[in-house]
Amino acid sequence: MSAAPGSPLQPGGARRAAAGLWALVRPVYDARWTLLPPLTGAAMLAMLVGAVVVAPREAIEGEVQRIFYIHVPSAIAAYLAFFVVFVASILVLWRGDMRFDAVARAAATVGVLFTALTLATGAIWGKPIWGTWWAWDARLTSTLVLLLIYSGYLLARSLSDSTDVRAARYAAVFAIIGFVDIPIINMSVRWWRTLHPDPIVTTLPGNQALPDSMLLVLMIGMAAVTLLTLWLLSLRAETERIGVEAEELRAQVDRLEADGTRAGRGVA
């Protein structure tokens, strides 16, 4: 399955460009443990101040609308994390490298966290606005199905050994199907029913639905949640990597001990 270096899939020019890009990103990546915590903290604080103090009170919905500044970024962060799971899963199948499996598991955990946060903040908003915590609306349903798919992924992966290559390949195949299934789920439930407000940020600049101050706070929220996602992802991937390493060391110690016992018996 793995493509040899210099295969037609990866022409030399593209490889050199990727290497150049990596040389630029590398210092930032290496400094992630010193950069991410203060940056995330500052951005989260700015988001909180922005959402509670700076952003104007929404005319119709009132104070509860302020939950929007964490709700929307959380939803986007969840999709971002699931996209990372998708790419890492392709790499698990293509390259057979278990480090990508650790990344996929880490991203799935973070994605499930943000999906749950999206559903929870949505329910808190829905109670006063729609009069109900939950409705079988298109977006709510597809987000819930998303939560179920990746919870299933995590369950499958936690019920198997973290060093099990075949279980990792299986989980990768499941993650790929799950990700490709998302647009089909979205379409099917939209045909089924919809109640959720339309996305208001992505409308054309001419007929912008969101006032500038609200848009600014939303952007800060996006930045804050993206940084938090990256930090959690780094932490989680590092934990997974150390876990795999510990498991391998334990297996090595077991082997050495077994050898030692056999050798000892031989001498005696």
Partner: peptide
């Protein structure tokens, strides 16, 4: 048989994908 409690896992994995 590589995964424990496979009987429970099958519906948990399959049903969300089969929603459409």
């Amino acid at each position: 048989s590589r995964v424990r409690s496979r009987e429970v896992l099958m519906p948990v994995l399959a049903l969300p994908l089969l929603v459409p």
